[in-house]
Simulated assay, not measured.
Amino acid sequence: MKPAIRFRLRANPIKTIKDSSKGTVEKQGKTFTKTVRVPLLHEEQQQAWLECKLQDFAPLETLILQPEPVTYFRKAKEGRSGKIQTVLFDGVITVTDPAEFESQVMQGIGPAKAFGCGLLSIARA
């Protein structure tokens, strides 16, 4: 039997959508519509996002979600601003692929790592 592991993850659950109002970009001779990141605000969307991120190496056993205050930021060099909506995930997982699990612990999960998101903290259950 594989051991259960408790985890904590502060993450910025988002989805990426095409936004034609942002224009297009050319890559390798093809034209693409620019995309934007949109926060997932509903608990069921946030849980589905996390399940998708963990599905290949550690399915969820239990989960508690805690929404956090919005973080606003400004990119001075680019002259634009934005916001991230972080969520604190606490729960228990069972690791099914140790190599991929180790890789995800090392690289982090999801975007906004510069704002402290993506760190998967683990402990024995």
Rank of each mutant, 00 (worst) to 15 (best):
R6K: 14
R6P: 12
R8H: 06
A11Q: 09
P13N: 08
P13F: 07
P13Q: 11
I14S: 05
K22S: 02
T24N: 01
E26A: 00
Q28W: 01
T31W: 01
V36Y: 04
R37K: 10
P39D: 06
L40C: 08
L40W: 07
H42R: 15
H42N: 15
H42A: 14
E43S: 06
Q47S: 12
W49D: 14
W49L: 14
L54C: 10
Q55R: 10
D56E: 05
P59V: 01
P59Y: 01
T62L: 08
I64H: 13
L65V: 06
F73R: 10
F73I: 09
K75M: 02
A76P: 02
A76N: 03
K77L: 12
E78P: 01
G79E: 07
S81L: 09
Q85S: 08
T86N: 04
V87Q: 04
L88Q: 02
D90I: 07
G91H: 04
G91K: 03
V92D: 10
T96I: 12
D97G: 01
D97R: 03
E100F: 08
S103I: 01
V105S: 02
V105C: 03
M106H: 14
M106P: 11
G108K: 03
I109M: 11
G110N: 11
G110E: 12
P111I: 12
P111L: 13
G116I: 07
C117Y: 02
L119R: 08
L120Q: 00
S121M: 03
I122M: 07
R124C: 13
